[in-house]
Amino acid sequence: MHPTNTSKSYELTQAGDRYFDGLVDKFSRSLYQAPRGELRLAMLDYLLPQMLHLTGQPVLDVGGGLGQLSAWFAERGHSVTMAEPSEDMLAHARAWHTERSAAGAWPPEQLRYLAAPLQSLLQHAPGPWPLITCHAVLEWLGEPARAVQTLASLLAPGGQLSLMVFNRDALRFSNVIKGNLQKALSDQLEGKGKRQRLTPISPVTHDEMCQWGAANGLTMKDVAGIRIFQDYLRHPPAQENEQATLLALEKQYCRQDPHWRLGRYLLYTFTKPEADV
């Protein structure tokens, strides 16, 4: 079931998830054509090669959105299957990827697409997969813990899972800085998922990620914070040299305690133990 885009109202699916049909332009404008989106992509470009063992292995990109992460892996020689439930998002990603492929960024056969939600991937893309990416997805699901169980089931023994989640603790801190004291005190931080605002319906804590990973037999190998400073600046950097300095700061402290814990996003690498012989 896809949400409708009538009267600027957006409904959750029957599973309680938020899809993004009708919001491609807002996503592109708010998340990727703005400084915060540029910083997020720059930090992924910096961190993924450090946090993952990349050997050109096949990748399942779950909830691939506008296709940036799938393109990142395709450019580096990986065969990528991008799964995305929003038809609008998938169409945008296909068109952009086609342009990039035609320009020689990667062979067209390197990317394939699945119009499917995470919950159906055990049927549509069972794998097992040596590398799964699932970035900024869990916070838009009604049952994020169950999603981790599904992802663990899709992962091959010895495989790696790259998870990026919207940090509930950072959301609380941000609300305090903005003066939303009662909202922070009552801990009513979740978005409703019914309008264009992009406050996640299920922001996640680090403790939850630890618990969900362990419950599914996964080992947490690494964690980093993304946008650990940017969202709290009173005056975002306007000059190019200031932006470069901020990026250097983010890189320097993104894996240092306590700074990573207040990243707007938390980026994890989980691994699945090798099968017993």
Rank of each mutant, 00 (worst) to 15 (best):
L185N: 09
R172Y: 15
I226M: 10
M89F: 12
L161W: 14
A95H: 09
Q256W: 09
L54H: 13
F27N: 06
C210D: 11
L12G: 01
R227G: 00
P108V: 07
S86I: 10
W106S: 00
E240L: 04
W212E: 04
E240V: 06
E139H: 08
R146H: 15
K251E: 07
R234K: 11
W106L: 01
L218N: 07
A170M: 04
M43F: 07
H92P: 00
Q239F: 11
Q123Y: 09
A238M: 02
S153Y: 11
G65N: 01
L155A: 01
G158D: 04
L54E: 11
V148D: 00
L151Y: 12
L161E: 02
T6G: 00
A95S: 07
S70F: 03
G65D: 03
H53R: 15
A170R: 12
S162A: 08
G213F: 10
D21F: 12
Q57N: 02
G67N: 06
I201S: 03
N241V: 13
P130M: 06
V204A: 04
K192Y: 15
Q110E: 06
S120Y: 15
R94W: 11
M220R: 12
G158F: 10
L198S: 04
K251S: 01
H206N: 14
L114Q: 02
T55P: 00
S86G: 04
N241I: 14
C134N: 08
E38G: 01
P126A: 03
A214G: 01
T269W: 06
L154I: 00
P117K: 08
T6N: 03
S174K: 15
P107S: 05
L131W: 12
F20M: 01
